[in-house]
Design a protein around this nucleic acid. Structure first.
Lengths: 343, 343
DNA sequence: TTGTAGGCGTTATCAG
DNA sequence: CTGATAACGCCTACAA
C-alpha cells in the first residue's frame, strides 16, 4: 500500500494536521518541523491522495473541454493552448469530442462528465441560439464562439463578422470582384458560418458589388473534403470566381486543392483567403493568407473566466472579445509575414 | 447542496446500500424497489459523487495520454482515436503535452499527475533506450512506438523499419535512385527516426545503391518548418535528389513546400513519400503518398493493454505490432487510393 | 433481497 | 504554532 499522511505523521512524530499543513504550504509551521516532515515524506515516498483531497474539498481540479474533434487542426491547436493555460493554473483538462452531434453536445453540457469536472469550456457546433435556455449555469461554463449566446454565461467571442469583413476587404483590395465563399450553412442565422457570411456580404455591399448566389458553396462539417466539394459544386455549376473566401483554413485548403486539380493557378487565376490561421496555412502550396486570432489569448481568457467562476470570484457573466489580424501570404499575392489590421 | 445517497435513501424509504445497488446495477434488487429508488433519484436530481467513489474504490477512472504536442497533426489524430477508444470502455483521458522535453517526459512518468490517473499511455520523443531503467512499472504504463523499449512494460509498436523499407522500395519502384531522407536524428540509435532510416538504408542496400551522406537531412522536431529547412540544407549543399522520403508527413509536406518554392515540380522532378498518412496528406498539392498505420487499431490496442493492466487482468507484458500499408497518391505519380502491401 | 457499521485519506474546526 | 476529532459521500463486508 501507498503511504498515507498518518504514516508520515507517525514517522515524523507529529500529527496528520501538521503534515497537511506542510503539504499545503501553510505558512505557520516551524521550519524545523517542516524539515522533519519533508524528510519523512521523502523517506516514505509519500504522495498525496487526490481522491481524498477532492472529496474533502468538493472539487476535482479537472476542467472539461468540449469540442467537435481533434482531427480538425484548429481544434487541436486550440486544445493545445487550453491545456497549456490550464496547467499554468494547476488545472487538468479532460477533452470530450462532440463530433458536431447535437446529442453529444447536450451530453457534454448535462452528462455525467459534468460531475467529474469542476467546470466546462465548450465550443459548440451543433447547438444553436434556440438552445440558449438549456445552457446550465450551475456547474461553471464558458462558451467559445457565438453559436449560442446567453447573458447568463461567460463567453469568449471572436468578432467573426468584423474579421470576415476584413478578410473580404483584403480580397477586394487585391482587385478581386467575383469572390466565392465556401463553408456556408444555409438557413443558419447566428453560428460562425452565418456571422462570417454576414461580414463577407457587408464588405461586398460597401464596395458596391452585388451578391451572387452562384458563388455560395455550402458545406456541413468544415474539413478539407468539404471545402473541395463545395468549390467543385460552384465550378461545376458554371460560376467563374476570381477569389475564394474559405470560412476556415481547412475549407480553404480543400478548395485550393480542388482548384489546382482543375489546373487553375493560385493566386493568378483565383486568390484564396482562409480563417483561423492554423499552422498548416504557412506550409500549403502556395502559402495561405488567413485571419489570425491569438489562440493563446483565447485559451487563457477562457481558463481565467472559468477559474474565476469556479472559485466564486466572478460576478456578472463577462464577455471577452479576441483580437484579430490578417496574415497575408502567397495565396492572395503576398509574400509572407503578418499584416496588422486594426481590430 | 447537492443530494447524497442518504437523501435518496430517505426519500425512497430504503437504505443507502439499496441506492448504491441500484446505481451500480447490482442485479439482485426487486424491480419495485429499483423503481422507487429511480424516481427518488430523479426527483432530487441526484448525481453520484465521483470523488467519494474514487476514494473508496482506489481508482479514478482517468487515464493519462502523454504526447509531444497536439499541434502536430499525427498526435492530434492519435489523441482523437485514443479518447474515442477510452470512452468505449468508460475511461476518461487526460492529455499531457511533453513538448519533446526530457524533463516534461520524466514528469509525465513520475510526476503528481500519475497519482490522479489510473494509468498512462506514453508516446515518448525525448527519452531514449538508455532511460529504460527509469520506466516505472507500478502505476500501469503502455508505451507507444519504439523509442524506449523494456520487457517490463506493455508496448504498441509500429514496425518502423519494415514500413520505412517498404516506403523506400516504393520510390525505387517508380524509378527513383537518388532518394533524400529528411528528419534524421544523427547519433540516435533506437528512436523512430533511427528505425526508419535503417529501413531506408536496407532498401537501398538491397537495390545495390550506395548510401550518400549528402542526401541525409537532419531535423530535430518533426514539423513542417523542420522539413522545409532540412531539405533546403540538402539542396543548398548542391545535392540533386530525385525523390524525398519524409520520416513523417509534416516533414514531407514541409519538404514539398521547399521544393515548390524553388520551382521544382513534384513528382516530375522530385517524388515524395511521407509517413503516418495524416488527413492532410489527402489534400496537399500534390496529394502525398504515405505509409498508413491504422490509428484506431493502435489506440484500441493501447487502451486495451492499459485497462487489462489496471484491472489486474494482465499477465506478462505484451507487445502488439500495428499493421501498415502504402497509400499511393500523386506525389509519387499515383492517382490516389491505397495500395495494399503485405505486412 | 436489504440493512448496519465502518473506514477510504484528507482537510476544517477549534482548542491548547 | 500544533494536535485531536469530526466530517466529506460512497462502498464493502457482514448480518438479518
Amino acid at each position: 500500500m501507498a503511504a498515507t499522511m498518518q504514516d508520515v505523521a507517525t514517522l515524523a512524530g507529529v500529527s496528520v494536521k501538521t503534515v497537511s499543513n506542510v503539504v499545503n504550504d501553510y505558512p505557520y509551521v516551524r521550519p524545523e518541523t517542516r524539515e522533519r516532515v519533508m524528510s519523512a515524506i521523502a523517506e516514505l515516498g509519500y504522495q498525496l491522495n487526490a481522491s481524498a483531497r477532492n472529496l474533502r474539498r468538493g472539487r476535482t481540479g479537472l476542467i472539461g473541454l468540449a469540442l467537435p474533434m481533434l482531427s480538425l487542426p484548429y481544434f487541436a491547436e486550440l486544445a493545445e493552448s487550453v491545456i497549456a493555460a490550464a496547467e499554468e493554473r494547476g488545472l487538468v483538462v479532460v477533452i470530450e469530442q462532440t463530433g458536431d452531434d447535437r446529442g453529444r453536445e447536450m451530453d457534454a453540457l448535462h452528462g455525467s462528465r459534468r460531475t467529474v469536472t469542476d467546470g466546462l469550456i465548450f465550443s459548440p457546433l451543433a447547438l444553436g441560439p434556440e438552445d440558449e435556455h438549456l445552457l446550465p449555469t450551475r456547474p461553471p461554463l464558458v462558451l467559445l464562439g457565438e453559436r449560442v449566446f446567453s447573458d447568463r454565461v461567460d463567453h469568449v467571442t471572436m468578432r467573426n463578422t468584423e474579421a470576415a469583413k476584413a478578410a473580404t476587404e483584403h480580397l477586394l483590395s487585391v482587385g478581386r470582384r467575383r469572390i466565392a465563399v465556401v463553408g456556408v450553412h444555409p438557413g443558419e442565422k447566428v453560428g460562425s458560418a452565418a456571422l462570417r457570411v454576414t461580414g463577407y456580404e457587408q464588405a461586398l455591399r460597401e464596395a458596391g458589388i452585388a451578391l451572387d448566389p452562384a458563388l455560395y458553396g455550402t458545406a456541413g462539417p468544415w474539413g478539407r473534403a468539404a471545402g473541395a466539394q463545395a468549390l467543385a459544386q460552384i465550378l461545376d455549376a458554371g460560376a467563374v470566381p476570381d477569389a475564394v473566401f474559405g470560412l476556415n483554413d481547412t475549407l480553404a485548403i480543400g478548395a485550393m486543392h480542388e482548384l489546382q486539380t482543375r489546373g487553375l493557378r493560385v493566386p493568378e487565376d483565383v486568390a484564396i483567403i482562409g480563417f483561423d490561421d492554423i499552422e498548416e496555412a504557412q506550409y500549403s502550396a502556395p502559402t495561405l493568407t488567413s485571419v489570425h486570432f491569438g489562440r493563446d489569448d483565447i485559451a487563457r481568457s477562457a481558463v481565467d473566466l472559468l477559474e474565476a467562476r469556479i472559485t466564486g470570484a466572478a460576478g456578472a457573466p463577462r464577455r471577452v472579445d479576441a483580437a484579430f489580424q490578417i496574415s497575408v501570404r502567397a495565396s492572395t499575392g503576398g509574400a509572407g509575414g503578418r499584416a496588422s489590421v486594426p481590430t
